[in-house]
Amino acid sequence: MNHPTMPKPSDRMLLIDGIPPTLIGYWNELLSFHEVLRMLVRRDLIVRFRQTYFGLAWLLFKPLMLMAVMSFAFGFLAGFDKNHSAPYPLVIFCGVIPWYFFSNAVPDSMNSLLNHIHIIQKTYFPRAIFPIAAVAVDAIEFFVAWMLFALGCLWFGYLPGWQIVFFPLFCLQLLFLCTALGLWLSVINVQFRDIGNLVPFLLTIGFFISPAGYTSMRIPDQWQLLYALNPLVGIIEGLRWSLLNGMDGFPQTPVILSLSITLAIGLIAVKHFLATEADLVDLA
């Protein structure tokens, strides 16, 4: 009797029938594979900075350069730096950092499924992990950049007001928006690779119709509503409001519009993702 007794198989039951999962079922599935998410984020960070001389310093270097160039272009050259209650580089920083994050996270997560199709064809874990991980990696840069903002405040001797308690909420909305767009675009990108060309182009335009290098104060009144249909307008102006002592007053209309559009995109994205996920390999 030297045979070890057989362990009882774990009680996990799985039914494979090709019917799309429910949101709750999928959420539980995601939680059970959260380690993969952590590993992918770690992998991307390691790969991004391995064999680089400056390593993690790149995380600080990029936002600093961006802020310097933008302040020069929009402040000094275009002369937008008048009539601001806060130092202009800080005003710019509040716009450029979320924009930079958005313009990286959306294409990164959009391409994440296609870039990992060789893994998707050979092993299973919830595919949403790829676009989420892509956003998470960029989000780390995003949060490091805000630490630079804190240093900038010290430098200029500037103190944010009570509105700062709303700062995390606007960040959360931006994260949600990027993830939603990433989920949605990534499945479309597997089937219709046209959007791989379209999105970077739209982002180039997006920079100019978002208040990244300027404030939305510059937009003529009759265009404000149309302008605010861009969900980034509400988020960026909300961030400015929360960090810069309620700068130009609370941007009520853009924030409400932006929240509604973000939620709508989230709903469509999740629905589309759940319906398509199982077929990804057949569609690719």
Binding site: P9, S10, D11, R12, M13, L14, L15, I16, D17, G18, I120, Q121, K122, T123, Y124, A278, D279, V281, D282
Partner: peptide
């Protein structure tokens, strides 16, 4: 069985954890 592609019809019931 590894959940890489869905079946067109029919189903598989699995008890326990699969590694593929």
């Amino acid at each position: 069985l590894s959940r890489i592609i869905p079946p067109t019809s029919g189903h598989i019931k699995v008890s326990g954890r699969i590694a593929s």
